[in-house]
Amino acid sequence: MKNLKKSFIVVLLLFWCGVAVYGWHLTREDAGSSSLKNVVVGYQAGDEFYVSKIRGQFVKKMKAKGYNVKFKEFQNGAAMMQALASGNVDYARVGDTPPVSALASGTKLTYVAAGGTKAKGSGILIHKNSSIKTLADLKGKKVAYTKGTSSQYMLLRALKVAGLSNDDITWVNLDSDAASVAYSKGKVDAWANWDPSVAQVEITENSKLLVDGTTTKALNRSFIVSPTTYASKNKTLSKLIIKYTEQDMKWANKNHSKLIKKMSADLKLSKKVVRRSITRRTFSMSSMSKSVVKEEQEIANVFYDNNILTKKINVSKHVQYLK
């Protein structure tokens, strides 16, 4: 009996060690071979780099050019900017507000490329039976947003378009999980948000967008940013990344069904939701242009004017125009 117990514990410990060693191998697998130069790419589920990752061509093409690409997933833009600041990510795909905030807090980053927008999937969500019919109806209502993210910018822009002042609504700062609960329970009247969450809420909560980015000019564009010192040393690499992701974006636009299937599995969202969010956006990736810099500058200005940023940012000083 006692010996039985002993051998049982020994077996259990051996099993434990075996599993742990297996886990170690799993974490080593993506460490890659050493002769190639490692490039760490940060992404969030569903974004442009995500497309490149699931298509698989990007890694192969980069390998052929002598680069070993490591994808690192992040839960939000702020975390990615933190990793970028500490040099743990070489290229990061982010939305349009995190880099502005990061610049203001002193992170030395450079805009390398600009992607498409999610203008049609970003805006202010309301229940279909809501009393809010026009932007002006927002007056006196409670609106959920997340501080420092695109949703804050959207809301600021929407108020401007509607000709309302910032004090005309009640601002309810919630992270996305809390906001989702608050919205479905009716604790807030509207919710500034973006895809795929918007598509999800539209379908499951019988909701619609009161206004989207095409009207507010809060476009919710994607960017690829890189640590400034890294970017200035790796221009050829940056060009390669733009070139290959651009090819992947073209593929994505033509292969919606494959993308939807994979994304709905990875994001654990229904195909219907993913389809809606995919069909209303166009994937693209290209080097920076004056017009997108102007868009970013506008965000920086608005955030500064509303005391969200404590520093004035000149975006054009942090841009590489790669041709």
Partner: peptide, 13 residues
């Protein structure tokens, strides 16, 4: 099981 083994590895190490 992959995520569990990775967690177990990190925990054990």
């Amino acid at each position: 099981q992959e995520n569990m083994s990775i967690s177990l590895y990190r925990a054990t190490a």
